[in-house]
Design a binder for these strands. Structure first.
Lengths: 185, 185
DNA sequence: ACCTGAACACCGTTCAAGT
DNA sequence: ACCTGAACACCGTTCAAGT
């Protein structure tokens, strides 16, 4: 890779990080190119698709999230660790006006395989929590990903997202029926 | 209202219904005007904002949803009725590529007060379900609206939406702790 | 009163021309 | 190899001119 090409690529990613933080994932690509000081053609050469550029923007935050999954797995009991990480994931899905939510899909596999990385990070916490009996055995990563991104998209602010996440997690816990209403009434 | 104005308004709504069904809530307004056979200026005269036009498109589906709430309240036991209606609401939020989800916000009050109508319809089922002890007393309409729209936006297909809704509702039920794990572990 | 449609500033995307 | 930037077809929105 030629030196000037490398330089332009870095300028574009930096500009994209800034612009996406301001305007969200639908930000103008021409604006990003302008801010990076290159022509629009140069942007398309490096990033043939908007999603490829967004993946580059997303990459830093994603790897941090994976690290945090490892830390939590070592430092906390399984149920607690999963809950804490899901909170991080939800916050994550809300950043940059929905960029996070947009990248947390199986299809958003551009350059880095975001979905596979997230699944690995989640399973590291989910499987122990299921083994220890805190979470239903039939829940999988797709459930967690869709529920957290959904909450992140629909909640009006972080406090409400936290409330919805708490409510939802009660549904994922293992069941302890006593009188079992809700069936006959 | 002059006769030709009335006629143009109706043409615009009809065109909007068709185009939004195809392209979703971000459909081109010029395209809608074109399809209605009027100039773009005429569209803006009748609907100063995109959301006002979308509310007109949404209105029919909304009133049907309110009727269904009344029917369910009369014909079924409270817990069952609420669940059935929430299924309808979720389906609803998925129609027209996210138009439903977009209108289910407090801000989307254009012409018709969609939010107030939905709240009335939901409370008709939620309050009895809470009185009968099937749903937590601290859950309110905002919780239900955000959870269903979130699920609708994040789920990849109707079957998955149904699964997520079921999981979530288990979290909204009244609690029956037996061994109460998830705290200490 | 209401409608028209040309006009403006923008957007995403492409591609000949340059170095 | 890579970059440039003019160019194209589109978009949302406005507003003078018409009836």
């Amino acid at each position: 890779m030629r030196a000037d090409a490398r330089r332009n690529r870095d300028l574009l990613v930096a500009a994209a990080i800034a612009v996406v933080a301001e305007e969200g994932p639908d930000a103008s690509l021409n604006e990003i190119a302008r801010r990076a000081g290159v022509g629009p053609g140069t942007l398309y050469r490096h990033f043939p698709t908007r999603d490829v550029l967004l993946a580059a923007v997303f990459q830093g935050r994603l790897s941090r999230l994976c690290e945090q999954s490892e830390e939590l797995a070592e430092s906390r009991p399984s149920g607690e660790a999963l809950l804490a990480w899901l909170r991080l994931l939800t916050t994550h899905a809300m950043t940059d006006k929905g960029l996070g939510a947009r990248m947390m899909r199986p299809t958003a596999t551009a350059g880095v395989d975001c979905w596979a990385m997230l699944r690995a990070a989640a399973d590291r916490l989910l499987l122990p929590a299921q083994r220890d009996g805190f979470i239903r055995a039939d829940v999988d990563f797709t459930d967690l990903a869709e529920l957290t991104t959904g909450i992140a998209q629909a909640a009006s602010d972080p406090a409400r997202a936290d409330r919805l996440l708490t409510l939802t997690l009660d549904g994922l816990r293992t069941h302890h029926p006593t009188s079992a209403p809700g069936r006959d009434a």
